[in-house]
């Protein structure tokens, strides 16, 4: 089978083996980008540091809920960072959906993980081909700089294929939970 991307390998090493070296690799890759993102969205240097610190600690502490069949590492980390940022700005906890139970006995299906990675690679490639104005608008939208009535997601990004890929992961999970009962 094909091997996973570096990021997925680091994340799984953290999740399954509490591997500190892998966490350092994740930190060195994501923390500086996260800081860039926080500074761009108007956080002071001190607040940006707090968010990076809290978010990276959450990556370590919440790694059990990472599932590469249904989430992309960068997307999962993005959401953790945004949640922390919103909690700090609004001084309240952001509502999140109930987490899905994950059967502990079964590992990932490699082909599903690899297919997810291929879909997110396509998404990245599509994002890179957007015209600068449109790229800018997408960035503004996902960094919370547009109101919900301003957001029109007509980007031409290939979200549909990722969605159906993630749904497969969810269906497999539901199937396994049934079998586990």
């Amino acid at each position: 089978p094909r091997t996973y991307s570096e990021q997925t390998q680091w994340m799984l090493a953290v999740r399954d083996r509490r591997d500190r070296a892998a966490f350092c690799a994740l930190f060195d890759y994501f923390a500086p980008r996260m800081r860039g993102m926080m500074m761009k969205s108007g956080m002071s240097s001190a607040v940006a540091d707090d968010i990076v610190q809290d978010a990276m600690l959450s990556v370590w502490r919440k790694s059990a809920s990472f599932n590469p069949e249904r989430a992309d590492v960068a997307g999962w980390i993005f959401q953790i960072a945004r949640n922390r940022q919103i909690d700090i700005i609004r001084k309240e906890r952001r509502p999140v959906p109930e987490e899905l139970a994950t059967p502990e006995t079964t590992g990932e299906h490699a082909e599903q993980v690899v297919a997810m990675e291929q879909e997110t690679a396509k998404l990245r490639a599509a994002l890179a081909t957007l015209k600068p104005e449109q790229r800018d608008l997408v960035e503004k939208a996902y960094l919370g700089e547009l109101t919900h009535s301003e957001i029109q997601i007509e980007t031409g990004l290939p979200l549909g294929t990722i969605k159906s890929r993630i749904r497969l992961g969810l269906e497999r999970l539901r199937h396994e939970l049934k079998g586990a009962r």
Binding site: M34, G36, D72, V73
Partner: peptide, 20 residues
């Protein structure tokens, strides 16, 4: 839930693209 994860992947692609 799948749509949310897909939108998170866009957020991830944007995060990935940021100048460190």
């Amino acid at each position: 839930r799948a749509s949310i994860a897909a939108h998170e992947a866009v957020g991830g692609a944007i995060l990935d693209d940021f100048e460190p």
